[in-house]
């Protein structure tokens, strides 16, 4: 369960978040859809306590990420917008490092590593250094890093950006499987099809504000459009910064 309430944040003169509130429930895939610069990444950074908002709270399983950032972060797996791999570590070392940071050790850690490596089918690259990995391979290592401690909540920031079809499909299958296990999945995107195809609930964000919330079908009904893309453009009042 992920929740942000009444977030307000400025970067200098620019209002990045303007009284933003939304929630993501367990057993659902929730998408934050918005044009570039709408405040998606900023909202997520506030949610896991990397940035501080001037007002409002971010709750992860009802833990305030401002009060107890470490406690809150234990409950999530994060798939960041930029893949910050340690180029000189092997994929396995990399995943093990994050497992250790989440408190796994010894046998338990090794078992979790084997499980996630098998699940994402990366045993062939597990003992290779990350430098020289393809974008798809990097995505898998980052996903493994986010899932190794089996968190209840998974947050993905623009996960399919720069991925080929095969990688995107793997990612989608993993997300669907997690949803079936009752996990809470929140991802941000500016790619229309992806959101329409995967999400149970879509939160449309523009200019740091919520423009609309609902299932893709509900949003179409709300705007009286048959195409989700049309509905979206109507909702944010412009087609700037959207990828079809």
């Amino acid at each position: 369960m992920l929740e942000v309430k009444n977030l307000v944040k400025h970067f200098g003169e620019i209002k990045a978040l303007d009284d933003l509130s939304f929630s993501a429930e367990d057993g659902q895939i929730t998408g934050i859809l918005g044009p570039n610069g709408a405040g998606k990444t900023t909202a997520l950074r506030v949610l896991y306590g990397l940035l501080e908002s001037e007002q409002g709270v971010g709750l992860i399983n009802n833990i305030d990420s401002k009060q107890d950032p470490q406690g809150a972060r234990k409950e999530i797996g994060i798939f960041p917008d930029k893949f910050g791999l340690y180029e000189r570590l092997t994929a396995r070392e990399q995943i093990a490092y994050f497992a250790e940071l989440h408190g796994l050790k010894g046998q338990e850690k090794e078992a979790a590593l084997d499980k996630v490596i098998e699940r994402l089918d990366i045993s062939d690259i597990a003992d290779r250094k990350c430098e020289g990995f393809s974008q798809g391979q990097r995505m898998k290592v980052i996903l493994a890093q986010a899932l190794v401690h089996e968190p209840q909540n998974l947050i993905l920031d623009e996960p399919t950006r720069g991925l080929d079809v095969m990688s995107t499909r793997i990612l989608r299958d993993v997300l669907k499987a997690l949803k079936a296990q009752g996990k809470c999945i929140l991802f941000s995107s500016h790619v229309m099809q992806e959101v329409a195809a995967l999400c149970d609930k879509v939160i449309v964000v523009a200019n740091g504000k919520i423009a609309a919330v609902g299932s893709p079908q509900e949003l179409c009904d709300l705007t009286g459009k048959t195409e989700f893309e049309e509905a979206f453009v109507t909702l944010i009042g412009s087609d700037e910064g959207i990828a079809a």
Binding site: L50, Q70, K74, I78, P80, F83, G84, F98, L101
Partner: peptide, 17 residues
Amino acid sequence: GERERNSLELLLMQPVS
């Protein structure tokens, strides 16, 4: 260096002080 390679941010998102 880690900041430029984006791994610093990922590290600070983990449950570590």
